[in-house]
Computed example of a mutant assay.
Amino acid sequence: MSKTRPHSMTHIARRMFELLEPICLVTFFADECNDELAALGHRTYWDGYFASRAAPLGRVPAQVVHAAFYNFADGEVARHIPSAWETIPPEASLAARERGSAASLRRILGDELADSPGLVRAADLTTKAATNAPMVGRVMYAGMRSLPVPGDPVARLWHSATMLREHRGDGHIAALVGAGIGGTEAHVLSALDMGIHPPESFGRVHHLPKERLAAVMDGLRERGLVDIEGRFTDAGRETKRRVEALTDELATPPYEALSEAELTELIAALEPITAAVVAAGSQ
């Protein structure tokens, strides 16, 4: 794939994010994955979440998981890692996540679509993209790349979509770090971008101590990114735009492994799959 068309490739990266993200979200929203993790003995949703998503990193301490995940508040990871691995091996949680995610995706799609040639082709091309990007500087992506790719097409599609999600996530963190935006601050800016006001009511942060949220908002005001009412300033909106644009740019390498024809074919193959998952709310 030619690397002389950055605008075209960033558009592709954004379109692929739109198509693949709903497929990845079955892991978090559908019942099967949570049921599989609960059956292992994980006491809460978040025990299973941290134990399974961080598992590709190995038995690392909470500080490493916190750094790699980036957007959780101080102390949240430590409530689950490493305790969630003490009686349940990371490998078991990882396998449960894959089983549950593939099962939910198959249920949502139905046998006709799940067993279709289009899904097989989508899985093959997604895997080609997902296994052909540099790993340097991509901690979560490198962890996923170290795992075997499933043979079943539905599981392979989910696995490769998740590899690409982690690749994009690593790049997004790099963009946030470069812009000096912390994890909780990133949630506030995302809430404002989605039209949520006050941003402190956003589901990813509303549970945090009020003092912590007030300090984050004060910091954003001091930097001129939000105004006295907690809404975007022009500078804040432009900062958010730059972060998203750089995230798209940093997400392009996997898709450079595909030809123009393969990219067109992949998008066409994914569209009915994603439409079905979106219609089900990834649940």
Rank of each mutant, 00 (worst) to 15 (best):
E185D: 12
R53Y: 11
F72D: 11
L105Y: 00
D152E: 15
H7W: 11
D234L: 13
A30F: 00
A235F: 02
G58F: 11
T131Y: 09
E244I: 12
M163A: 14
E76P: 05
E200N: 05
P153R: 04
P56D: 08
N132L: 07
A133N: 08
L94P: 06
D170P: 01
A114F: 03
R221M: 13
A191K: 02
S104F: 01
L192S: 04
A235W: 01
K240C: 11
H80A: 10
S116W: 04
R231H: 15
L19R: 03
G178P: 00
V77D: 04
E200I: 08
G75P: 09
A279G: 12
D115P: 01
A276M: 08
W46H: 10
A155G: 08
H66D: 15
M135N: 06
T274C: 05
G137R: 00
T27H: 15
A275C: 10
T131G: 14
A114S: 12
A13E: 10
G183N: 12
M217T: 04
G75T: 06
H42F: 14
R15I: 13
A174I: 00
M217A: 13
H80P: 04
D35A: 15
D248R: 09
A214G: 08
L263A: 06
T184A: 11
E222L: 14
L263N: 02
R43L: 13
P148D: 08
R212M: 10
G110A: 03
V278W: 07
A215T: 10
H197R: 10
Y45E: 14
E112G: 02
H172E: 09
E36H: 10
T126L: 09
E238V: 12
I88R: 02
Y141A: 13
K128R: 15
T162M: 14
I181N: 03
T87I: 11
F28E: 11
L189I: 06
W158C: 06
P89Q: 04
M16E: 09
S93D: 14
A73T: 00
I88F: 08
N71L: 13
